[in-house]
């Protein structure tokens, strides 16, 4: 641990709690409906119950846990796309999140999504033009690039999103199962890209259910269970404990 203390932290998560309020039906909604009390049948779900950790530059962090354990919520909160109910996230740069459910704009062609994605990432129009060829090439979707993105398979969408996100250097990148739907070849290519980024002193978070991906790419693993940090340590040890818990 003392070797770590001298390194510069890039992400610090301090007592992070996230709640979701949602309208529940059935049993959960049964308590007295009242217009004055504003929300009927609102159920508060504690997705994260106080998670704390620090990450230093050059680390790549695997995040594992069962479905619904709060992994994606943690990623969204670190990216600043989900406001915490308590606690805070501090980061040296704006973390970029690469998720599964981000279809950008489904009605528009892949090519136009490249333009918009690049501009939204803060590239200038010239930089987008310069990066376009590489994005298309990396995604391997050249023949489909003029078709609306809604006609793409989920794997194709993920490839394009990953390629767009990679057009810009990110100090902190969060990859939330975005690679899971890609085929084997693309996965190998993108995992290589993530390792390259890590070597350039970027911090990478990788959420995955593929333990081999985690072991191959990560230097440290967080195990999230029911909204709490259950284990934090060496990939081998954490993966072993996680597998044993099932």
């Amino acid at each position: 641990m003392d070797a770590l203390e001298t390194r510069r932290p890039t992400v610090v998560v301090d007592g992070l709690e996230v709640e979701y309020r949602s309208f529940a039906s059935g049993k959960a909604a049964a308590d007295r409906p009242s217009l004055l009390r504003r929300q009927r049948g609102v159920r508060v779900v504690h997705a994260l119950k106080g998670v704390s950790f620090r990450v230093d530059e050059g680390e790549s962090i695997g995040v594992i846990g069962h479905n619904g354990s709060g992994k994606s919520t943690l990623m969204r909160a670190i990216a600043g796309l989900q406001s915490p109910a308590a606690g805070a996230v501090y980061a040296s740069a704006r973390p970029a999140l690469l998720g599964v459910n981000a279809a950008l704009i489904p009605d528009l062609s892949g090519d136009k999504n490249i333009t918009l994605g690049g501009l939204a990432l803060g590239l200038t129009p010239e930089e987008v033009e310069a990066a376009r060829e590489e994005i298309v090439e990396f995604s391997g979707l050249a023949e489909f690039i003029d078709l609306p993105m809604k006609t793409y398979s989920s794997g194709m969408q993920a490839r394009l999103r990953f390629s767009i996100a990679m057009a810009r250097h990110h100090q902190i990148l969060l990859v939330d199962e975005a690679l899971a739907v890609g085929d084997k070849e693309f996965r190998a290519k993108s995992e290589q890209r993530i390792r390259d980024m890590r070597d350039q002193a970027s911090t990478v978070f990788l959420v995955s259910h593929s333990m081999s991906s985690i072991r191959d790419t990560c230097t440290r693993v967080l195990w999230i269970d029911h909204g709490e940090l259950r284990m934090d340590g060496e990939p081998k040890a954490v993966v072993k404990a996680y597998n044993a818990s099932r």
Partner: peptide, 20 residues
């Protein structure tokens, strides 16, 4: 591990809060 003051760590390293 629970005794670390993460907020102080972040402030010392000059990290801004995300989403502010």
């Amino acid at each position: 591990m629970a005794d670390i003051d993460y907020r102080a760590v972040a402030i010392e390293a000059g990290l801004p809060r995300v989403g502010a």
